[in-house]
């Protein structure tokens, strides 16, 4: 497999994730789509890192995974806080401010 294969794979996964965020209305699914986008970035970085023979990209992946974990903790906590006030995870019902 060449670098192009990896880049194509990552672009496809990124597009799926982006579509998911924009189209789906379930907050948890949207959140999962964001994770998908981040993993597409990870594939990209790993492929480039191997191709360039430089370790920087792989170190960056560790950064991204750590941050994604922290983000997941905060995001799920926010969803639970919302769920206690109004039992919904539908993004379209979040319209208390007419925005």
């Amino acid at each position: 497999m060449t670098l192009q294969h990896y880049l194509a794979l990552s672009a496809i996964i990124f597009s799926i994730g982006m579509t998911g965020v924009l189209v789906r209305r379930n907050l948890i699914v949207m959140f999962m789509s964001v994770e998908l986008m981040l993993n597409a970035v990870n594939i990209n970085l790993a492929a480039f890192s191997k191709y360039l023979n430089a370790l920087g990209g792989q170190v960056f992946i560790v950064f991204i995974m750590a941050v994604a974990a922290a983000e997941a903790a905060v995001g799920l906590a926010l969803i639970i806080a919302l769920f206690k006030n109004r039992p919904t995870v539908n993004a379209d019902e979040l319209n208390t401010m007419n925005g």
Binding site: G17, F31, A40, V74, G75, L82
Partner: peptide, 22 residues
């Protein structure tokens, strides 16, 4: 609602940032 919107869009934007960065 404010926190969640900020979270979803913030995470989305940092994913875009990262893809460009890669």
């Amino acid at each position: 609602e404010s926190g969640l919107k900020y979270f979803i869009i913030g995470a989305f934007s940092s994913a875009i940032f990262l893809f460009g960065l890669s």
